[in-house]
Structures are given as structure tokens and as C-alpha cells.
Nucleic acid binder design. Structure first.
Length: 112
DNA sequence: AGCTTGACTTTGA
DNA sequence: GTCAAAGCCAAGC
């Protein structure tokens, strides 16, 4: 259980889960939110990521929306950094979308 | 206490 | 299959 104490903010829980994402794999905001028991607060996951950019170091590039599109790539220092990082991990990105997203998708609940 | 915002998701056409 | 509209949840003001 990633949820040791629900005292923390939603953001921290998101950070922990995102840190657990294996290299070369990606997941969706909804899956994260659901894994945390937040239900449909997928938007908040994104906000957490944005917050992380300034405070914590989390592989936010491995988090995409439900269709595998790099929704938040614009929030990266250079937007191109996101696809670059993904490419470095073996994830191919085409037109801001993850190729074979279905195959690369990492289900948090399946691993946890 | 209430309203606005958001790196989303789901549903209906 | 795609496009537009409504919904949900939590944080920030």
C-alpha cells in the first residue's frame, strides 16, 4: 500500500506513485488518481506534477492523458524535453502521442 | 464559506 | 472512428 498515512496532501501521494513508474513505461492521470483512491480527480494529478516541477523530482514525462498524448509537455522547461526523456527510455513519441501506448501503459493497481 | 481553475474522463451526437 | 458538452475532485484565492 502506497498510502501509509493519508495525512499527506494528494500531491505527495501522486509523487510516490509516479516515482514507482518503471522506466520505459507510461501511465495515465486517471489510473493514478484511481490507484490513490481519489476516483476522478485526474486533474489534480496534473497539478501535482506541475507542483513537482518546482519542488520534487518525479518522472512526470511518464504521465500522459488517457489517449497517450503528452498533454502537459507544454509545462516542461523546454516542451521538447518530455518527448526527449521518453525517447531516452525507449518510449517512442509521434506527434505528441505515445506510440503503442496500450502496450507501454503501466497499470499502478496491477503492480501494487 | 464560496467561486474559479485545471498536465482529465466520460458520455452523447 | 471523431467532435462537442457536462461532470468530478481537490487546491488556490
Amino acid at each position: 500500500m502506497i498510502n501509509q498515512g493519508e495525512r499527506r496532501d494528494f500531491f505527495e501521494l501522486v509523487y510516490e506513485l509516479v516515482r514507482c513508474i518503471p522506466s520505459g513505461r507510461v501511465t495515465t492521470y486517471g489510473a493514478i488518481a484511481k490507484a490513490l483512491g481519489a476516483g476522478r480527480s485526474s486533474r489534480m494529478v496534473g497539478q501535482a506534477m506541475k507542483n513537482n516541477l518546482g519542488d520534487y523530482t518525479v518522472p512526470a514525462h511518464r504521465v500522459v492523458n488517457r489517449v497517450g498524448m503528452l498533454s502537459g509537455k507544454h509545462s516542461f522547461s523546454p516542451p521538447e524535453k518530455m518527448e526527449q526523456l521518453l525517447a531516452s527510455e525507449g518510449v517512442k513519441v509521434e506527434n505528441d502521442k505515445v506510440v503503442c501506448f496500450k502496450e507501454l501503459f503501466w497499470n499502478p493497481m496491477q503492480e501494487l
